[in-house]
């Protein structure tokens, strides 16, 4: 269970996060919705220990504080992060990317089983093992990024705009896969622009505005909330809910 309390972040004089409180349980999918510049990416980067600004607050994973640790220790503690732009090793092969995913100490013991699981979820990665990641399509690179994060055997998987640049069909497939991943007991925390699809697979959602949480609810309740529909769903969700 990931617990974030009064997490603040600032870049110089600019306040990016003003005291965020969120939780993500095991096997739970939590989505954070917000406009560009609301602080979504900063929040994930601050949790991952990769925020360049000044941060303060508390981040606990299963009761242990991970705030202020270097990024590599946070991975070791059990948080895997897929940043916007995916952060894969473009010049290395798919197999090397996946192997490096299991670099941290705790992931090595289960790496064979985890690799099986990744191949089961994304059979394409097995076929394309020798391909250089950079030469793959956007959707395939996203598979590499998520597969690599799963190889770290995390308790919590964080994704920043995973559907960015993907076709509607591929986005659908991606979100379907995320719900399969969470079914294994992994907690998933994602930041998304695609509110409709992401709420469709999530358990809970938070609304973030100007670096502050302005709302929290179950995902189905948010989907039907008129204010959310107006702000994030283009104000026009078919009433049938299709």
């Amino acid at each position: 269970m990931l617990t974030v309390s009064s997490l603040k972040a600032a870049y110089g004089m600019h306040r990016a996060l003003g005291g965020i409180d969120i939780t993500v349980g095991a096997g739970e999918i939590v989505v954070i919705l917000g406009a560009n510049g609301a602080g979504k990416s900063t929040l994930l980067r601050a949790i991952a220990g990769m925020c360049e600004g000044q941060t303060s607050g508390e981040v606990n994973l299963d009761g242990k504080s991970i705030f202020g640790m270097p990024a590599e220790d946070i991975v070791e503690a059990g948080i895997a992060f897929v940043p916007e732009g995916r952060g894969i090793f473009g010049d290395l092969s798919v197999t090397e990317n996946l192997q490096l995913g299991a670099y941290c100490r705790h992931a090595r013991t289960n790496s064979v089983a985890n690799l099986e699981q990744v191949y089961d979820l994304f059979p394409k990665l097995k076929e394309r093992g020798r391909q250089i990641a950079r030469t793959m399509s956007g959707g395939e690179q996203q598979m590499v990024a998520i597969g690599r994060a799963m190889m770290a055997d995390p308790k919590i998987l964080m994704l920043d705009e995973p559907s960015l640049g993907l076709s509607p069909l591929l986005s659908k497939e991606l979100f379907h896969n995320l719900s399969r991943i969470s079914a294994t007991g992994m907690g998933v925390l994602l930041v998304e622009q695609n509110a409709k699809l992401s709420l469709g697979i999530s358990d809970r959602g938070y609304l973030i505005e100007n670096g502050a949480i302005t709302g929290e609810n179950r995902a189905d309740a948010l989907l039907n909330d008129p204010a959310v529909q107006a702000a994030y769903l283009g104000g026009a969700v078919a009433p049938s809910g299709s």
């Binding site: 990769m50 990024a71 090793f89 490096l100 690599r148």
Partner: peptide, 9 residues
């Protein structure tokens, strides 16, 4: 990629 390297620990 140093950033990707940090991501995998």
């Amino acid at each position: 990629d140093t950033e990707a390297a940090r991501l995998v620990g």
